[in-house]
Design a protein around this nucleic acid. Sequence first.
DNA 1: GGCAAAATTTAGGCATGCCGAAATATTGGG
DNA 2: CCCAATATTTCGGCATGCCTAAATTTTGCC
Lengths: 241, 241
Amino acid sequence: MPPARKSALSSGSSSVQDYVKVIYAFTEWQDKPITSSQLAVRLGVANSSVSEMVRKLVDLQLVDHRPYSAIELTSAGRRLALTMVRRHRVLETFLVQELGYAWDEVHDEAELLEHTVSDTFINRMAAKLGDPQRDPHGDPIPSADGTVHVPHAVQLEELDGGHTGRITRISDADADLLRFFSSEQIRLDDRVEVVGRRPFGGALVVRFGPSGSARELDLGDQAAAALWVHSDPHPGCLLAS
Amino acid sequence: MPPARKSALSSGSSSVQDYVKVIYAFTEWQDKPITSSQLAVRLGVANSSVSEMVRKLVDLQLVDHRPYSAIELTSAGRRLALTMVRRHRVLETFLVQELGYAWDEVHDEAELLEHTVSDTFINRMAAKLGDPQRDPHGDPIPSADGTVHVPHAVQLEELDGGHTGRITRISDADADLLRFFSSEQIRLDDRVEVVGRRPFGGALVVRFGPSGSARELDLGDQAAAALWVHSDPHPGCLLAS
DNA sequence: GGCAAAATTTAGGCATGCCGAAATATTGGG
DNA sequence: CCCAATATTTCGGCATGCCTAAATTTTGCC
Ligand SMILES: [Mn+2]
Ligand SMILES: [Mn+2]
Ligand SMILES: [Mn+2]
Ligand SMILES: [Mn+2]
């Protein structure tokens, strides 16, 4: 009898769920697939642990992997990942909107709850929240049937002086950074204008808020990379596009 | 160096939490302490698993236990148990009141979530619900500081004919039974009157509902044991008390 | 009081997921 | 093209929590 590959009918252990979710998230806003050691860093485990788990994920047919190369989700893996991402983001939205959490407090709680709630729970909660399209950090919430629309956005860091746009996403990877943005009153959907760069690789100078009462701010690399904007069409680019 | 007994500073693993909670629950409505095999049945694990875990609980100073005798919580164990019971019951209340679950659907979901939510989560959720005193089944919800008031109540089964009272608690141990009560429109706080017993150890005959529109019903032993009532003072008992 | 039945504990094992150290494969600079 | 630095995998082990089967202790009945 052949070894009868386990099918991933059920949703896997919480570890499996986290691995798949992180593999997915890595490619959500750019397209290079994740490597073993990057995965290890993001999960806070040893490289050897990743190697072992990846073997299991291959066995569960959730990822494709040739030894020593990058790790990519199968369609079943992507389906599971989208389920987990939906759970995580619906929970974050609930914590902020219904329980009064600050946006830097929701991640850890959602990271655990996502493995425990039922589909019914998430779907009723989402309905109660009016089926939100994005979470408190601007990350898109996949629908129950597993479709997502990732908005067009660029990191603020990538924009040249003169560009304007609207903040579409604020990376929730660093809670301290979220608190900084909070204290500077930087929020989703705020208008921004890139003024320019301080000389010799210095900070990015950015103007925030409505054109009347705009504040100018110097942003370090970390901060500028965490802010994603939907850029307005720019005169200088009309021909290039 | 002495083995340095681990203190139960943190809240223990989910298994530890479930063991302690079941040990507590066993004595909530009566006072005999739980035995090893009863604990095994309620947790759905083998007797040997209980023996091992009890050793660990003793080590964590959550229970007292002499080999071959019953298992009792220490005060730290009771504290942890009350925390878990509060979590479980606040969650059940939320599921019914905010997410529209039926009362027979909440138990399994709460059983998992209770290990995952933070204290902040539970306390904010409880506040949102108006700090309820009891869950959908009538079980008392301990307060955040660990105090409970278990109402006076007797199993319907224990009452003789002629007694009247109000339903105070409906055991959530059996979901099918809850559905039966639901279909018979038996709810918390309904008035009841014990009419008598069918002959030869037969069913208990009970009258439900407000005196005008009362319905009479035959209850089997299972059902009669699952209904707890606050009994009105009864003429025949005035002298005896 | 003795002894078989019942309850409980101990022994030996399995699965999951993690680790550090050792082995192996890949890569880029010379 | 080669070889050392780097990335990845393999190996042996540990912790948790569960199981079955085999001791061992307690209990209840004659
Ligand atoms: Mn997680
Ligand atoms: Mn988020
Ligand atoms: Mn539980
Ligand atoms: Mn309940």
